[in-house]
């Protein structure tokens, strides 16, 4: 379980997050919604250790992770797929996956997880030895998620994975994520602009506005609240 308690993050004078709290359950998808600039990306960066909160605590499986380095957070089992990135263009698909699986230690464990992940994303299996720079947008997003999964994480943080993807592709991606959260008992935190499709697969939802939490509820309740939807989510 991933717990965020009273986290505030400041970039210089700008208060990106103010007293944000949420809980993400294991085996569930928690989606974080809100307009651009609401602080969603900052919240993910705080969870993965890229930025350190000025106040508040972040706990994962009971362990306090606030203030730790990114490497330590990764070792604790949290994998963050940043928006538009996460793929090393200089390396091939296979090399990217091997990179992701490095923290597993033994060669056999690495080989096993890479094989599994490639099964999950057949197009990646076919493009195995191509340089990541030659992949399409959709393939790259798959690779970024695949690389994160190659570390056998316990929590997966995804920042706008559907950005720039065709609707049919987004739908498939969401299906994969739902399957993962159930079968792999993964804690998934999904930041999305596309609130509709995110709410369709998530169990809980948090809405941020100007760095603060304005709503937190089950996904179905939030989806039913038309006022909220119009006001903050644009549909």
């Amino acid at each position: 379980m991933l717990e965020v308690e009273g986290v505030s993050v400041q970039y210089g004078a700008v208060r990106a997050l103010e007293d944000v709290s949420l809980t993400a359950e294991v085996g569930a998808i928690t989606t974080i919604l809100g307009a651009n600039g609401a602080g969603k990306t900052t919240l993910l960066r705080a969870m993965s250790g890229l930025v350190h909160p000025r106040r508040g605590t972040i706990r994962f499986d009971g362990r306090v992770l606030t203030g730790r380095s990114v490497e330590q957070v990764v070792r604790a089992g949290i994998a963050h797929v940043p928006e538009g990135r996460g793929v090393i263009e200089e390396l091939t698909v296979e090399e990217n996956l091997r990179l992701g699986s490095l923290i597993l230690g033994s060669r056999s464990a690495q080989k096993a997880v890479i094989a599994e992940v490639l099964e999950l994303f057949p197009p990646l299996r076919d493009a195995r030895n191509r340089y990541a720079s030659s992949l399409s947008g959709g393939e790259r997003q798959m690779l970024a998620i695949a690389r994160a999964l190659a570390s056998r994480p316990k929590a997966l943080l995804l920042d706008e994975p559907s950005l720039g993807l065709a609707p049919i592709v987004t739908a498939r991606l969401m299906a994969v994520l739902r399957e993962l959260s159930r079968s792999a008992s993964l804690t998934i935190i999904l930041v999305e602009q596309n609130a509709r499709s995110a709410l369709s697969i998530a169990q809980s939802a948090v809405v941020l506005n100007l760095g603060r939490v304005v709503a937190a509820d089950t996904a179905s309740s939030l989806a039913a609240d038309t006022n909220l939807r119009h006001h903050y989510l644009g549909f």
Binding site: A115, L118, E119, R125, R128, N129
Partner: peptide, 13 residues
Amino acid sequence: MKQATDITVPSQQ
């Protein structure tokens, strides 16, 4: 898990 056949991709060769 499905066994992947050993494909030697042309780019590798």
